[in-house]
Lab assay of single mutants.
Amino acid sequence: TGEEYIAVGDFTAQQVGDLTFKKGEILLVIEKKPDGWWIAKDAKGNEGLVPRTYLEPYS
């Protein structure tokens, strides 16, 4: 389980392990790392690192 967040901007993977997403996408945050990069999963089940500055809590 995780917390749902909504993307407030588009993000394109910079390196292997990053997750590309579009503004408005709902992501499930699995782990919040202290460096500001969180592990998240998208609706298709893809998992990767995302920058927390692009996310806001979804309710």
Score class of each variant (00 low, 15 high):
E3V: 11
W37D: 03
T12I: 11
A43T: 12
K44A: 14
P51H: 14
G2R: 08
G24E: 03
D42F: 02
T20A: 09
L28V: 11
L55Q: 00
I6K: 07
L27H: 00
K22G: 06
F11I: 04
D10S: 12
P57A: 10
W38T: 01
D18N: 13
N46C: 09
S59F: 10
A43W: 13
K41F: 09
L28G: 03
T53P: 06
W37Y: 09
D35Y: 07
G2V: 12
G45Q: 06
E47W: 11
A43F: 10
V29E: 00
T20N: 08
K33Y: 09
A13R: 07
D35R: 04
Y54I: 08
Q15S: 14
V16F: 13
E56G: 05
I39W: 15
E3L: 10
D18I: 15
L27S: 00
T53I: 13
F21S: 01
G2S: 12
K44P: 03
S59M: 10
K32T: 05
K33V: 07
L27A: 01
V16Y: 10
W38N: 01
G24D: 06
G9S: 14
T12R: 08
Y54Q: 09
D10C: 06
Y54E: 06
L55N: 00
A43V: 12
W38A: 02
W38E: 00
E47C: 14
V8T: 14
L27I: 07
A7P: 01
I39G: 03
I6T: 05
P57K: 12
Q15C: 09
K32H: 05
V29F: 02
E31H: 12
D18K: 15
E31M: 11
K41P: 00
Q14T: 12
W37F: 10
K22L: 07
I30H: 04
L28S: 06
V16A: 13
I30P: 01
S59W: 11
K44M: 14
V8E: 03
G48R: 01
K23V: 08
I30M: 12
N46R: 11
Y5R: 02
F21W: 02
K33E: 04
R52P: 15
P34K: 09
Q15L: 10
I30G: 03
V50N: 00
T53S: 13
D10Q: 05
E47Y: 15
A40M: 12
K41R: 15
L19Y: 01
A7V: 03
F21K: 00
E4Y: 15
W38L: 03
E31F: 14
V29H: 00
Q15R: 15
I39L: 13
Y58Q: 06
V29R: 01
G36K: 04
F11S: 03
G48P: 00
E56R: 15
A13K: 06
V50D: 00
G36S: 05
R52M: 15
A43Y: 11
A13E: 04
I26M: 07
K22N: 08
F11N: 03
S59N: 10
E4P: 15
Q15H: 12
I6Q: 06
G48L: 02
L19Q: 01
P57M: 07
A40R: 00
V50W: 00
K41G: 03
D10E: 06
N46T: 10
Y54T: 05
P34D: 11
Y54G: 04
I6L: 08
T20S: 15
D18E: 15
T1D: 14
D18G: 15
A7T: 09
Y5P: 00
Q14I: 13
K23T: 09
I39K: 10
L27V: 07
G24T: 03
E25N: 08
F21G: 02
E25A: 14
G45K: 04
G2L: 13
Q14D: 08
E56A: 15
I30A: 03
D42G: 04
L27P: 00
K33R: 14
P51L: 13
E47Q: 11
L27T: 01
I30Q: 07
Y54P: 02
R52D: 09
A7H: 00
F11C: 04
W38Q: 01
I39E: 03
N46L: 10
L27Q: 01
W37Q: 06
G17N: 06
I26D: 01
V8D: 02
V50K: 00
E56H: 13
G36T: 04
R52T: 08
A7C: 07
V16T: 14
W37R: 08
T1V: 12
A40Q: 00
K22H: 11
T1F: 12
L49D: 03
G48C: 02
P57S: 07
L49A: 09
T1G: 14
T12A: 08
K32W: 05
N46I: 09
D35S: 11
E56P: 01
A40G: 04
T20H: 05
I39N: 06
W38S: 01
G48F: 03
S59Q: 13
L19H: 02
D42H: 03
E47S: 10
E4D: 06
K23P: 02
K44H: 13
T20P: 13
D35Q: 05
D35V: 04
L55E: 00
A7M: 03
T12W: 13
G45C: 06
T12L: 12
S59L: 10
Q15K: 15
G2H: 12
F11Q: 03
E3G: 09
G36I: 06
L28C: 07
A13Q: 06
K32P: 03
L19V: 03
I6G: 02
Y54C: 09
N46D: 08
G24V: 01
K41H: 08
Q15T: 14
T53C: 12
D35N: 12
G17Q: 07
K32D: 03
D18H: 15
D42W: 01
I26P: 03
Q15M: 12
V16E: 11
D10N: 11
W38M: 04
Q14K: 13
D42S: 07
L55R: 00
Q15A: 12
P57R: 08
T20Q: 07
S59H: 14
G45T: 02
T12F: 12
Y5D: 00
P57Y: 08
G24K: 03
P34S: 12
D35A: 06
I6E: 04
Q15F: 09
Q14L: 11
L27W: 01
E31G: 08
A40V: 09
I26G: 02
K44D: 13
G36H: 06
K32I: 05
A13S: 11
R52K: 13
F11V: 05
